[in-house]
């Protein structure tokens, strides 16, 4: 799972969101490190929908513009949990190595 996919799925895990809300949520989750372009976001959403990890929710019109909401599926929750477990294991392993060398960042 790419970092962008991981962040979008994490954003949707909180509540169904429309495109702009996803972009803002991803920026907040990544503390500003990841800013999704429109083309990038829809590539990620297409793949999530195709893989059954997310699906379309409702549509709204806001100031004359279409807003389409997306929500995470049960499969998406399971995939996110598995990815969190995988990343956590990696973090624990890396922290152990750094701690053994007495370097900062090993504290977890």
């Amino acid at each position: 799972m790419t970092e962008q996919t991981f962040l979008v799925l994490t954003a949707l895990a909180e509540e169904p969101l429309h495109g702009y809300a996803i972009v803002r949520s991803v920026a907040a989750l990544s503390e500003g490190r990841t800013r999704l372009r429109v083309g990038t976001l829809y590539g990620v959403l297409d793949r999530l929908v195709a893989d059954g990890l997310a699906e379309r929710d409702r549509e709204e019109v806001h100031q004359g513009r279409l807003r389409r909401y997306y929500r995470i599926t049960e499969t998406g929750y399971r995939a996110l949990s598995a990815e969190v477990a995988r990343l956590s294991a990696n973090v624990r392993a890396a922290s152990g190595v750094l701690r053994a060398r007495g370097l900062a960042g090993g504290a977890l």
């Binding site: 495109g19 702009y20 972009v23 429109v38 083309g39 976001l41 829809y42 513009r65 279409l66 807003r67």
Partner: peptide
């Protein structure tokens, strides 16, 4: 339409 709306938000 969805993409245009998102693009113009900011």
């Amino acid at each position: 339409e969805e993409m245009v709306a998102l693009f113009l938000e900011e």
